[in-house]
Simulated assay, not measured.
Amino acid sequence: MILTLAVSGYRSLRDLVLPLDRITLVTGANGSGKSSLYRSIRLLAEVAQGRAIASLAAEGGLQSTLWAGPEAFSRGMKQGEVPVQGTVRKSVVSLKLGFADEDYGYAIDLGLPSDAGRSFFAMDPEIKTEALWAGEALSRANEIAGRNGPAVRVLDGKGQRVPVVQNLARFDSMMTHAANPKDGLELLVLRERMRAWRFYDHLRTDRDAPARVPRIGTRTPVLSGDGGDLAAALQTILEIGDEHALAEAVEDAFPGASVEITVNDGYFELLMKQKGLLRPLKSAELSDGTLRFLLLAAALLSPRPAPLIVLNEPETSLHPELLEPLGRLIGAAAEKTQVIVVSHAESLVAALSALPGCAHYNLRKQLGETVVDGIEPPRWNWPKR
């Protein structure tokens, strides 16, 4: 389970360190930074896939994602006595992301390219430094692997930090290029753990949604990001997962209803029997809210539980009566999976807040910066360049 999430210099997240729980609920007004927090976690996951630089480019490049305010706020700025203005910068420009779980911690620092103007890729950020450590917060004593510039050093069996990569490209992470069973076992373990994180924010339910049409199915223990393999994912739950939990979730949301999967020439199709109807409805006939709930059920009841599932506004298209059943579904999933939920639906927020092991953070903006009131930030140290 992730215990600490740290973000610095990303959009409105100037310097945020949050303790996480089994369920972490993030709320706040529009523009308070909820989407930025979600994106920062997703960007952290992209590091383990080797796609962090490309993901930043898709957001407009590093310059578009950096904190746009001053490096620090003076007391006068905070009290409104003087206007917010820039000062002489004391630190280098950087975007930092990190987390610590029960075993390891990891952090990455991305900065401006050193060859700006001499390459067609001069807008690409550079990975300046990375660190992997054991325990709560990074220190010299507990660092297992570190990258500074092109060199990666890891702690060997004798307690010595030895180089394993000498010429790592500035756009490549040690998570993807130094993780191996011989010299970088801890890097390999954490990389695969991060690769198993799941994000759901584009589960389509529109008329042309992939989940509404039959498609060739294979065993699907993990629902895809767009939900196109819904029928196969539900059948996988029925065969090798918790079919009783699925039936209970459907009954909880739609009393008297049940789902079944048909297969014709290898094409899987979802059918839903509803109380009072003389025939089952095909997925193409389901309402947006009904289809979305079934998509979320398939994601949360996966036979292969993820170490982390992040749901961004899962209440979209759902009728208010479905929000409490969704809260119970998330609570059941959290027994096996850590869940982060970004939401502004009052009924869902109330249902999740009442669950044990739920940390609720309400974000707000202060002088353009996302802040969270009433928390004691965990101990955290960033790696030095």
Rank of each mutant, 00 (worst) to 15 (best):
L5H: 10
S12C: 14
D15R: 07
L18V: 11
L20C: 15
T24N: 11
T27M: 09
S36H: 12
R42A: 13
Q49F: 13
R51M: 03
A57L: 13
A57M: 14
A58R: 15
E59M: 15
E59R: 15
L62I: 11
G69V: 10
G69S: 07
G69C: 09
F73L: 15
R75N: 07
G86D: 12
K96A: 12
D103I: 05
Y106V: 08
Y106P: 02
I108C: 14
I108A: 14
D109N: 09
L110S: 08
F120M: 12
M123C: 04
M123Q: 11
M123P: 02
I127P: 01
A131P: 05
L132Q: 08
L138R: 04
L138Q: 06
S139E: 07
R140W: 06
I144P: 03
G146A: 12
G146F: 08
R147L: 07
V154A: 11
Q160S: 12
V165T: 04
V165L: 07
Q166I: 00
N167C: 00
N167Y: 06
F171M: 14
A179T: 00
K182G: 00
M194R: 00
R195Q: 14
R198W: 09
F199T: 06
H202N: 01
H202C: 01
T205H: 05
D206T: 13
I216N: 09
G217Q: 03
P221N: 03
S224M: 07
D229M: 03
G241S: 11
V250Y: 08
E251H: 05
A257D: 13
V259R: 12
T262K: 12
D265C: 03
K273E: 11
Q274P: 00
G276S: 09
P280H: 07
K282Y: 10
S287T: 14
F293T: 03
L296N: 01
A299N: 08
L301G: 02
R304Q: 15
P305D: 12
P305E: 12
H319I: 07
P320L: 08
P320Q: 08
E321K: 09
L323R: 02
L323F: 07
A332S: 10
A332G: 06
V341E: 02
V341D: 05
H344D: 06
L352M: 02
S353Y: 10
A354V: 03
G357I: 14
H360G: 06
K365F: 02
V371M: 07
V371W: 06
V372L: 07
D373S: 14
D373M: 09
I375G: 01
R379A: 15
